[in-house]
C-alpha cells in the first residue's frame, strides 16, 4: 500500500480497498481507482457523504433531478446490495463488474432476470412486464393502444414462456435471451474497458503500487 491516507479517501473506501475489490471483480486495481473518481463525483452531487443515494443516481443518469424513472430505480435497488437505500463504493464496483465486456454471459443473464422480476417473486411475470412497457411509453414519445400492448405481451410470452404458465422462469429466460442476444446489449458497457482513460486523475490519487497488487 502507498503512503499516508489522503483526505476523505478512507471515508469512501472503508475496508473495501482497491486491491480487494480488484480481486473480486474483472477490474484491475487501476480501473477500481478510476471508478473511484467517478464514484466521488456521483456520490457528492447532492450530499457529500461518500454514498450514492437514489436521487444522486437518477441525477447522474438523466442529468435531471426531477425525473422519476422505474428502470433507474430498479437498477439502483439491485446495486444497493445491502438494502440500505444507498450504494457504497464496494456495491458500485461489484455491480458495475456485471456490465464489464469480459464478465461471463451467465452473470449478465442472472442480473437481467432480477431486473425484470419486478416483484422479486423469482419469475418475470406478465403484469410486471406490462408495467415496464407502460413506464417506457411514459418516458418516450411512443404511443401504443392497450390492445397493441396486449398483443406484444401475447407474442413475447408465447415465445418466452415455454411451459405457458403465465410467467418466465430463469431457465426459460436463459433460453429466450440465447435466441434474442440483442436483449443483453444493455448489460455490457464497452466504456468500462477504457475507464482509466476516462478518469486519468486516478493516477494522482492512487495509494496502491500496481506491481504489489
Amino acid at each position: 500500500m502507498g503512503c499516508g491516507p489522503s483526505k476523505g479517501r478512507r471515508q469512501y473506501l472503508g475496508n473495501e480497498d482497491p486491491v480487494f475489490l480488484a480481486s473480486q471483480t474483472t477490474f484491475s486495481v487501476s480501473e477500481v481507482e478510476a471508478l473511484f473518481e467517478l464514484f466521488k463525483t456521483i456520490s457528492s452531487s447532492v450530499i457529500d457523504d461518500g454514498l450514492i443515494n437514489k436521487e444522486e443516481f437518477v441525477l447522474a443518469l438523466f442529468k435531471n433531478r426531477t425525473k422519476e424513472n422505474l428502470f433507474a430505480s430498479r437498477i439502483f435497488d439491485l446495486f444497493d446490495v445491502k438494502h440500505r437505500g444507498v450504494i457504497d463504493f464496494g456495491d458500485f464496483v461489484r455491480s458495475l463488474h456485471i456490465f464489464h465486456p469480459n464478465t461471463p454471459l451467465e452473470d449478465k443473464i442472472g442480473f437481467s432476470f432480477k431486473l425484470y422480476d419486478l416483484d422479486n417473486t423469482g419469475f418475470i411475470e406478465r403484469k410486471g412486464v406490462k408495467q415496464m412497457l407502460l413506464a417506457l411509453l411514459g418516458e418516450s414519445e411512443m404511443k401504443l393502444a392497450d390492445e397493441a400492448i396486449e398483443m406484444i405481451l401475447d407474442k413475447t410470452f408465447l415465445e418466452a414462456d415455454i411451459n405457458q404458465d403465465g410467467k418466465i422462469d430463469m431457465t426459460e429466460w436463459q433460453h429466450f435471451v440465447s435466441k434474442n442476444p440483442s436483449l443483453l446489449k444493455i448489460m455490457t458497457l464497452p466504456y468500462l474497458r477504457d475507464i482509466t482513460t476516462a478518469f486519468p486523475s486516478f493516477v494522482f490519487n492512487s495509494e496502491v503500487d500496481e506491481d504489489a497488487a
Partner: peptide, 25 residues
C-alpha cells in the same frame, strides 16, 4: 414498428437502463 418487437426489446430502449449515461457520455 413497436408491435413487431418483443416486450423486452422495447423495454431495453428505456433511458433508465442506459448506464452509459453514468459516465457523462
Amino acid at each position: 414498428q413497436p408491435v413487431a418487437m418483443n416486450a423486452f426489446e422495447l423495454i431495453s430502449m428505456s433511458k433508465g437502463l442506459n448506464l452509459e449515461n453514468l459516465f457523462g457520455t
